[in-house]
Design a protein around this nucleic acid. Sequence first.
DNA 1: CAGCATCCGGCCAGATACTG
DNA 2: CAGTATCTGGCCGGATGCTG
Lengths: 115, 115
Amino acid sequence: MLSGCTVQELVDRVAGKWSVCILVAAADGPIRFTELERAISGISRRMLTLTLRNLERDGMLVRTVYPTVPPRVEYSLTPMALELHAALLAITTWAERHRTDVALAREHYDARPTP
Amino acid sequence: MLSGCTVQELVDRVAGKWSVCILVAAADGPIRFTELERAISGISRRMLTLTLRNLERDGMLVRTVYPTVPPRVEYSLTPMALELHAALLAITTWAERHRTDVALAREHYDARPTP
DNA sequence: CAGCATCCGGCCAGATACTG
DNA sequence: CAGTATCTGGCCGGATGCTG
């Protein structure tokens, strides 16, 4: 039991590029498919769909369909996902504080005399 | 400037599967190449080397070579990486607390009547 | 011990076209 | 609007062999 659900695999899943973006974008309340597509620059429709399905399957997203025309679908974070979002904030905050440091470190590394 | 160093790219880099493992493994002090190899189950020598190089280039790891025979190389986290490690702890703690929830959500999702 | 070089197969993700 | 289906190519990463 719990196969495919080690801590490593789970971190891997939720820390995935598009997963993070979706979790951040949906943190402020329910959001629609097209809104997500616009909010997350660079994501393809395919990857958006696949990532949404995975997050929904993992119990991170609730998918609500309003039977109107045109159809309207909203995604919202579950409590579990909200907790994760708080933890992710620590990472993104760190990234913002240190992106110049990292850029400088790279320049420095690349400028070394090639051994 | 700062090209290739957006917050998204940076999160992507440091949240990578093997990066996380290395950051965790090296958090308790300097660690040798072979020790990392043993500590991180499933990693290949190639990926260990590549990930170490990237983390070093990004200023997250300091690589110390002791000119002995046989050679001895130790990797230790920089202050910046230690901060990141603390943030990563929030994620792994979350993952530990919720892995059963996620596993159950998956079972439930997979057991739905296929539409 | 701690790597690097090379080859190669698999799968991940983009592009495109179609639908309830 | 919110998807699904199929094809396809690129690159990621494993396997292997060689060195200071």
